[in-house]
Design a protein around this nucleic acid. Structure first.
Lengths: 320, 320
DNA sequence: TTGTAGGCGTTATCAA
DNA sequence: TTGATAACGCCTACAA
């Protein structure tokens, strides 16, 4: 593998001159530049970027932590991240955790070892404390509605979004209302739970523990959710499902069982995936690609810790 | 940032000893090991991996070229790649091309500059010639049914898979058959087109140019596909749609327009996404996660160029 | 079992 | 406008 030194020899200049040519620095005479360029061409030279990384102390790589790659929610965020990252000359390293803490730590270690210039955490496993520990090695951006002030974050106001969805359900006259979350213990979920409890209290509605469902991510989970719901003696009449894929799975399964939405049970989803549009699912639209874009923006300006909130929109369709 | 030298000083040993400890080499006395470990702890040391990369000439990073991140087909493949790559100590850098050639070249350049140890191309843009050019810089694995012998590949036998799907449609008694592809010019598409033409000839069936549709990737494309189909005077009675998302979009739109599948038009999809299962779409199941796994296996053994083919399964359900 | 020294390929500083 | 040379931080013969 030919290196800068060989080019220098071949072109009859010093390595510094070659480096200058490679980096488009000024102060290189046209003749020398030309001979360097020729040498590069002749010897089929290309830079070893690891040497540059070492020398510069950065890699132009951002780590992205997500639980699944094959999920529309994270797919959309990653799409947004990738686009903006590319725009500022960065590339993305995907860490698919499947909610294993170890995978997240791997990413953090790579930040520490300078293989990554920063990390965007789309869904967190470790405690805040851990992330804060690693922050000294590079910017860590959180895509979650965090109250912590020490880490920049970008998120939807999940409390408000869920509240307004629930208010809508209540306004429609439903009294027996259930809801379905991803991981119960996640930040988003706890905000949603708080919103649920607050609103239910406000209207003096029954808040049954069994009407909180968990583990909804994928379309197949919706099938299970329907079965759980269907096997209940006392069923909620409306369910807020915090992800459209699961909502779609629920509705399609219900149809198979000869049940109609919203006649037999009303459904309100989240995310506004194209699938929800196809199925006319009433849902809360979240600007996922913008989350991605903003996360990169926050990464770019690590000096100022900011907590950005993005807006949501209730898409009124036909399932409630 | 503390480095190996400082640790050596602090621990009263040489840098080599520190290096040996870091790499779990034998031949380090317990006492020295201990003092090194202490120094590491005291000084809060962590390795700069870029130096290791430079020194070793590799990064344990594999580039993955895909058109979209938010698509179940590629999501599933990436899932498989990620899993297997992690198992052998590699991480994944995603290149989302959206079919822009430039993005693909970026990845190839990173291979050339040694930021990547290899590349897995899930959907190709550049000509084979270009990829072959870059092969000297590291293994390039192609997830496509390629005839070329110079590059390892992993794929489904798309000719056979499409043929068997079409044979099934014919056997069901359909004579007016259309099909829908992603990019007409892709390798997969050309194999499918060849299969279509061959089978249609074999049975002396009408092969109308207008019944070849293009640009089907996402669920929304299915909506458009339905509209295109619906606006035809002479409609095909069955359509093979080479991706379940689009098939689902087609069917759901058809239902909105009061049409029934398969009564008004029969549909056969590809991929066996969970959505197709939910909707009872007859589809060709492709082992996408295995493609990912095998791609990494091929990357691991770059010495032998191999062309692996994986099996498909026709999932007989209710849309034809 | 340990240490010395050279190499990995660039960039950056400083002097010329 | 150029060139030496010292970083950057680690690995690995080779010698001891």
């Amino acid at each position: 593998m030919t290196n800068i030194k060989e080019i220098a020899q071949y072109a009859g200049v010093s390595v510094s001159t070659v480096s200058r040519v490679m980096n488009n620095h000024p102060y290189v005479s046209p003749e020398k530049r030309k001979s360097v360029l020729q040498a590069i061409d002749q010897l089929n030279y290309s830079r070893n970027i690891n040497a540059i990384h070492l020398s510069k102390g950065k890699t132009n790589l951002i780590g992205v932590i997500i639980p699944f790659t094959n999920h529309p929610y994270y797919g959309a965020i990653v799409q947004g991240i990738t686009k903006q990252a590319n725009a500022i000359g960065y590339h993305i390293v995907i860490f698919q955790t499947q909610y294993e803490r170890e995978k997240e730590i791997q990413a953090l270690n790579m930040l520490q070892m300078k293989q990554l210039d920063g990390i965007i955490v789309c869904s967190r496993i470790s405690e805040m404390k851990v992330l804060l520990d690693y922050q000294k090695y590079g910017p860590i951006i959180l895509c979650e509605d965090t109250a912590q002030a020490e880490l920049s974050s970008i998120s939807i106001d999940h409390y408000a979004a869920f509240s307004s969805a629930l208010e809508y359900v209540v306004a429609k006259g439903y009294k027996k209302i259930g809801y379905s979350l991803g991981r119960k213990k996640s930040r988003n979920s706890s905000l949603r739970t708080k919103a649920f409890n607050d609103i239910m209290n406000k209207y003096h509605l029954l808040n049954k523990k069994e009407w909180l469902f968990e583990g909804s991510y994928h379309i197949k989970d919706g099938e299970k959710l329907f079965q759980d719901w269907n096997s209940m003696i006392d069923k909620p009449e409306a369910i807020i499902i915090t992800n459209d894929d699961t909502a779609a799975g629920f509705i399609l399964t219900a149809n198979k069982f000869g049940m109609k939405v919203p006649e037999d049970v009303a459904i309100l989803g989240f995310n506004n995936d194209s699938l929800s549009e196809m199925l006319d699912i009433t849902t809360v639209s979240l600007p996922l690609d913008w989350i991605g874009k903003m996360a990169v923006d926050l990464f770019e300006n690590p000096k100022v810790i900011r907590h950005v909130k993005l807006d949501y929109t209730l898409m009124k369709r036909k399932t409630i």
